[in-house]
Design a protein around this nucleic acid. Structure first.
Lengths: 136, 136
DNA sequence: AATGGACTCATACTAAAGTACCAATCCCTT
DNA sequence: AAGGGATTGGTACTTTAGTATGAGTCCATT
């Protein structure tokens, strides 16, 4: 909200400045009115583009951001989440075990707990549900 | 490219029209120059926003579009692709078999072929690779 | 008519995945 | 110090997944 106010203040300021400039230019005869109008048009054209770009950035981020709150809500521990990430890239339990320097038994335990917490029957379904929850 | 030319033509036309309007207004004394400038600024401000929005739509679509050419390149058949989609949503072979009204054996055959064609060792990896290829 | 691709299904395996239970540390909080 | 969650690991099993191989049907192209 603060940024919006600042942006609009800047816009009004720019408008006033351009107006002052154009008035002076027209009176002093240094600039033609067509050029003044053209400059104003171009300046606000690009202001429109830039503002829209910034507003979109704020909207796009959440859609691809992981929801860390949801992870804690589901009571998924750090280690379990690490395992979940490895499942998502298609690794087997043995491969995950080697990557995280633990035994395959440990990974199986983590996977079983993940399936319960994500209410999934299989690891493929767990990945799908995790993506629905925006935690992957 | 054609659209870009049309858009710029429309922009120039709008600029000329606004210029004509403002010249007439100022000469006839019906409008103050400040108001004219303000109108031009607002109009081009919104033109900027709208143009940027349209250009973004063209960019976003391809990133979430499935690459049907890639599917044929990988020699993945229609039925195999259907199975791939079901794997991606986390179904087991038996569940896929019931959904597509075929036996589990058939699904296993399709899955095996998919793994070869996608160069994957497991179904989870197949899903991951399919997404890399933009076919899911 | 013959060939080849797509789809189907089966059998018999081997290999992963997943379940159920138990248990030992470690670390943090009460 | 005691309790509890997190992490680790094991054994013993059941269930899915995946491989290998062969074979039949259907359909379009040659």
């Amino acid at each position: 909200m603060k940024k919006t106010i600042l942006i609009f203040a800047a816009l009004i300021l720019a408008l006033v400045l351009l107006f002052q400039l154009s008035t002076y230019a027209i009176i002093s005869g240094n600039l033609e009115i067509e050029i003044t109008i053209a400059i104003i048009a171009i300046v606000f054209f690009f202001i429109g583009i830039m503002l829209h770009k910034k507003s979109l950035l704020k909207q796009e981020r959440p859609s691809s951001e992981i929801d860390s709150k949801k992870i804690t809500d589901l009571e998924i521990s750090n280690r379990e989440y690490e395992v979940l990430q490895q499942i998502a890239i298609g690794l087997s339990n043995k491969e995950i075990a080697e990557k995280l320097f633990v035994s395959e038994s440990t990974i199986k335990t983590h996977v079983s707990n993940l399936l319960i917490k994500l209410n999934a029957k299989r690891r493929t379904q767990a990945v799908q549900r995790a993506k629905d929850f925006q935690i992957l």
